[in-house]
Amino acid sequence: MSSLSLRGMIGLTAGASMLAITAPAIAQDAVGGDDIVVTAQRNNQTKVTAGGNVGVFGTKAAEDIPFNIRSYNEALILNQQPDSLGEVLENDPTIRTALGFGIAGEVFVIRGFDLSSDDVGFDGLYAKNLAADANRSKKGEWPPFVSLSEAKGYFFDSGKATLRPEFEQNLKNEVIPMLARNLVDYDVNVIEVIGHTDEVPMVGSSNLDAKLVSASTNRFPIRGLQSTDNAGLAMARAVAVVGILRSDPRLKGAAILPLSGAQMIVPVDRMADGTATASDQRRRRIDIRCQSACKRDPLSARKRGSDSLLVQ
């Protein structure tokens, strides 16, 4: 009886369990018809509440806060054993978790609006996170991946590589300062600028073979570049962005390289299947990633026979 009672009370507190062990012995000595009632309080209740600790505002009920809040208590997190914040937020059907562009950082889509993991505060404040990041070396980690799409307001002239004025301004005021910080924080020295397009076919004539290299060194105007295919257009647009980055002294010393993803890559990191022939602003974009220059060992070769090389 004692062992059965102990197993039955395994989820209760230690004090309640001890009471359950002794209860059968009392029941055997009790006068027939008497009932023994054991009560206990669960200390490990899981809770999702509309209110809680909101940092500088203190602990508040939802109706006393000027924004919406949903709190998950310690017991819920302990019982769920999540590996990330995204797994905790799976308890909320209005939140979807995805990965960031080219990195393992989480992105939280809350009722259709994106919130990156960089915008998550601690105890309602961001200063603690910023201080911790400043004191922690980021060398050896992957820098953040930057994606500038038409859907986010980064436009080129239609079918051309010419940057709109607001695109160029955002590059100088927002993107370049961030890239300059990343070069130092992550100890990297290469910036890759990758142009992407949608799958809408192009027609016309191309002068990229003759003028693309000249345009990349500002010896030919970007507005004069012409392409007849998406691969060329994506490269021309990457060259246009590279021209702005290379001319900025804040990125001095970095190797800035243009690349083309053509119409082959769908956000995020999926190969195109050739069926999406409609215009798509999300796919017409510039992706920027930073990394360290590849370290290549010098090739020492010895001639063996007439036409073979031994690479050591």
Rank of each mutant, 00 (worst) to 15 (best):
M1T: 07
S2D: 13
L4W: 01
I10P: 00
A16E: 14
M18R: 06
T22Y: 03
A23S: 11
V31E: 02
R42C: 13
Q45C: 09
N53D: 12
F57T: 03
F57I: 14
T59I: 11
K60P: 04
A61P: 03
E63S: 05
D64S: 11
F67T: 14
N68F: 14
N68E: 09
A75H: 14
N79K: 15
D83I: 07
S84D: 12
G86C: 07
E87D: 13
L89T: 02
E90H: 09
D92V: 08
P93D: 13
P93F: 10
R96T: 12
L99E: 08
L99F: 07
G105E: 12
V107Y: 07
F113Y: 06
F113Q: 12
V120L: 05
G121F: 11
A127I: 14
L130V: 06
R136A: 15
R136W: 03
K139G: 05
V146G: 01
S149F: 06
E150L: 14
A151S: 15
F155N: 02
T162D: 02
N170W: 12
L171T: 01
E174Y: 10
P177G: 02
M178H: 08
A180N: 01
R181F: 08
D187R: 01
D187H: 12
V188I: 02
E192D: 13
L212G: 04
T217P: 00
Q226T: 15
T228L: 06
T228C: 03
D229P: 03
G232I: 04
V242Q: 11
L245I: 07
L251I: 04
I256R: 04
I265C: 02
V266H: 09
M271T: 06
D273K: 11
A276H: 10
A278M: 00
A278K: 07
S279H: 06
D280V: 13
Q281E: 14
R283N: 01
I286C: 00
I288R: 03
S292K: 15
S292P: 05
K303L: 12
G305C: 06
S308R: 14
Q312W: 01
